[in-house]
Write a protein that binds this DNA or RNA. Structure first.
Length: 261
DNA sequence: AAAATCACCTGTCCGC
DNA sequence: TGCGGACAGGTGATTT
């Protein structure tokens, strides 16, 4: 799940439950999720510290502490956070478990081991080191336009390129292109000024809507594509059976009536 | 320069 | 019913 809206929901969740309380213990059950740190170093650093604030940038979550470093989290395709008291509530595939002084726990669960947790010196440093483009909810129209006009790539591939715009993934790009009525394979550079305007505004509207709905497809209205992302799915607008095509190896859902090439 | 392919992982679902 | 393969809302490296 974890694209920009999902990670934003995790951020709100962590803000509500995990800040300003002492960390008493850290259990790392799967060290393969660690990046730029080790089990021993992460434990040593976090023990007796507190989380103080969070930042989201693209699909990345940064958790500030009352020390010099920040914790970086990336959720891969299956990662999420859960805060709970009793160990029997601990989610499956918990890879890292933080215990607070109030005896509650925060689990980082990630079924496929594609998520990452690490220590970083600062958000800006991390963004630079990983060559992330502007956040999809922060980018200006002018910068967006420049990105789109500077590439021959198919718009879907370009919108998913985290070094150009950070935060969009397979599902939300499909959603955005559906509402903008654009075929995912159109070369980015061929979009008109009007199409760029529509695409930009649609991107922001869809992301905000998704965050408002807690990134939960079951809360999405009937005009959204996401709940139709399955075999037999139909276009919310014209009811045509949705098409599935592969773009950059990812399954893309679109309506061939509404999204013309 | 852009697209395709593979690799990293594991759980689920689909089709013989 | 059972089993193998395809596939899954991500990303990076390598090849075409």
């Amino acid at each position: 799940m974890p694209e920009l809206p999902d990670v934003d929901v995790y951020k709100t969740y962590l803000n509500a439950c995990g800040l300003h309380q002492g960390i008493s213990d850290i259990e790392i059950t799967e060290p393969r999720i660690l990046v730029e740190t080790s089990s021993a170093a992460l434990k040593r650093y976090l023990k007796n510290k507190q989380f103080t604030a969070t930042d989201r940038y693209g699909k990345h979550l940064f958790v500030h502490t009352d020390g010099a470093m920040i914790v970086h989290m990336h959720f891969g395709m299956t990662g999420f956070l859960k805060y709970f008291k009793n160990k029997n509530e601990c989610p499956a595939h918990t890879r890292l478990l933080i215990r607070f002084v109030n005896d509650y726990h925060l689990a980082f669960s990630c079924r496929r081991l594609l998520g990452q947790v690490g220590l970083a010196s600062g958000v800006e440093d991390f963004i630079a080191a990983n060559d992330l483009g502007p956040d999809a909810l922060q980018i200006s129209f002018d910068a967006f336009k420049e990105v789109m006009q500077g590439s021959q790539k198919a718009i879907k591939s370009l919108l998913m390129d985290q070094t150009k715009i950070a935060g969009l993934g397979n599902v939300y790009v499909d959603e955005i292109l559906f509402h903008a009525r654009l075929h995912p394979k159109i070369a980015a550079r061929r979009l008109s000024e009007e199409q760029l305007n529509t695409l930009y505004q649609t991107m922001i509207d869809v992301l905000r809507y998704a965050i408002d709905k807690k990134a939960d497809p079951e809360r999405f209205g009937a005009s959204y594509l996401l709940p139709q992302r399955h075999k037999n799915g139909r276009c919310p607008r014209c009811k045509t059976a949705l098409s599935q095509i592969k773009i950059t190896g990812r399954t893309s859902y679109l309506c061939r009536q509404c999204q013309k090439g």
